[in-house]
């Protein structure tokens, strides 16, 4: 079981949380899980849209005390 890598993109605007996630997904191996932390209001919807379009997998997506915690598994 791979460990979950946390990408802390809280309070960042450029290039922003989703771009940080994409860059980290490129470095990951198939089956790896990345947890993105984001304070960008749009992340809750934008990240799943990208993940679904590219064909990865959302493990969980929740907002805890103003921070989105989105776990994504690399599927291909």
């Amino acid at each position: 079981m791979s460990e979950v890598k946390v990408v802390d993109a809280r309070n960042t605007f450029c290039p922003g949380p989703l771009m940080e996630l994409i860059s980290n997904m490129k470095m990951a191996s198939v089956g790896d899980t990345i947890e993105l932390l984001s304070t960008d209001e749009g992340s809750g919807a934008d990240v799943p849209e990208w993940v679904n379009k590219v064909g990865h997998e959302i493990i969980s997506n929740e907002k805890i005390e103003g921070v989105w915690h989105i776990k994504v598994r690399k599927a291909k």
Partner: peptide
Amino acid sequence: YPVNKVHATANV
């Protein structure tokens, strides 16, 4: 462009 907007920074 990789994300669902023409730039990753919302205001841009």
